[in-house]
Amino acid sequence: MDGCPVDTTQLLKGVLDLAVLAVLAEQDSYGYGVVRRLRDSGLNGVGDASVYGTLRRLYQAGALTSYVVPSGEGPHRKYYGLNDHGRTMLAQSTRTWVAFTQALDALLPTRRPGHDQQQ
């Protein structure tokens, strides 16, 4: 999206918590695993440091559990998973997100009936 005034990384900043929580709701993961999952899902603009910082913050906020998985080669991996607080956060954030996107969708001219893409 060249020339798009809305920067994807700016958008991501606001919803990174939700995205990370969603990834961890799928399955427990470690820092780089979350980054990779987000990029695989199409969120290419997501920064490694942002994900790492978000994970640490969510953990400090008491939304995540963590445990270390030893590995033969390579480093030990610190896995994160959702606890009850994290699941509550995810549910709340999801509701907020859905309401927000619906409201914005209704505002966007290309998504309103009677307008075609060219307008």
Partner: peptide
């Protein structure tokens, strides 16, 4: 891949520190 350590630190700070 990650940019300079300073950029990385700034990103960490904003992802972690800003809202803390």
């Amino acid at each position: 891949r990650l940019g300079s350590p300073e950029q990385y630190a700034a990103e960490l700070r904003s992802a972690y520190g800003a809202r803390t």
